[in-house]
Amino acid sequence: VEPFVCAQCRTDFTPHWKQEKNGKILCEQCMTSNQKKALKA
């Protein structure tokens, strides 16, 4: 199985991968920080 790479921070290690609607693969940490930024905006 090919390891995923986060589209935002380029890490290849995370407990959980998330896929955005646009198809980008993000690590759990980037997904969480993006959600917090969206709530602040």
Rank of each mutant, 00 (worst) to 15 (best):
F13E: 09
T11V: 15
G23K: 13
M31K: 08
V5C: 02
F4I: 12
Q19W: 11
D12K: 03
T14E: 08
T14Y: 13
E20P: 01
T32L: 02
E2L: 01
A38E: 13
E2M: 09
N34T: 04
Q29Y: 02
H16Y: 09
Q19V: 13
D12R: 12
K21R: 12
E28A: 06
T32M: 06
A41K: 07
Q29A: 05
E20L: 03
C9P: 08
K21I: 02
K24R: 10
F4Y: 06
W17Y: 15
N34F: 04
T14C: 06
K24Y: 01
Q8L: 15
Q19R: 09
Q29F: 05
P3C: 14
C6M: 00
T14D: 02
I25A: 03
K21L: 07
N34C: 04
H16G: 09
I25M: 07
A7Q: 13
T32A: 08
N22L: 04
M31W: 08
T11W: 06
A38W: 02
Q8G: 15
Q29M: 06
G23C: 06
Q8S: 15
C27P: 00
E2R: 01
G23A: 12
K40C: 06
K18Y: 01
F13D: 04
T11R: 12
G23E: 13
Q8Y: 14
Q19K: 12
T11F: 03
E20Q: 03
I25P: 11
F13V: 14
E2H: 13
K40S: 08
E20G: 09
F13H: 03
L26P: 06
K37T: 09
P15D: 13
Q19D: 13
T11S: 11
R10S: 15
L39H: 07
V5P: 03
Q8H: 15
K24M: 07
C27V: 00
P3L: 11
P3R: 12
K40V: 06
P15A: 09
W17G: 13
K24L: 07
C30E: 00
A38H: 02
F13S: 05
L39C: 07
S33H: 12
M31T: 08
L39S: 11
M31V: 07
L26D: 03
L39R: 09
S33Q: 09
K21H: 15
T32P: 08
T32C: 05
F4G: 10
C6F: 00
M31Y: 13
Q19L: 08
Q29L: 08
C9H: 14
P15H: 00
A7P: 07
R10Y: 15
K18V: 10
Q35R: 04
N34Q: 07
E28Y: 05
R10H: 15
L26W: 07
K18P: 05
T14L: 08
I25S: 03
H16F: 09
H16C: 11
Q8T: 15
F13R: 06
K40M: 08
P3K: 06
C27S: 00
A38P: 01
A38T: 15
Q19N: 12
D12W: 05
I25L: 05
T14S: 08
Q8D: 15
P3H: 13
K36M: 07
W17T: 15
V5F: 03
R10N: 09
Q29V: 02
V1S: 01
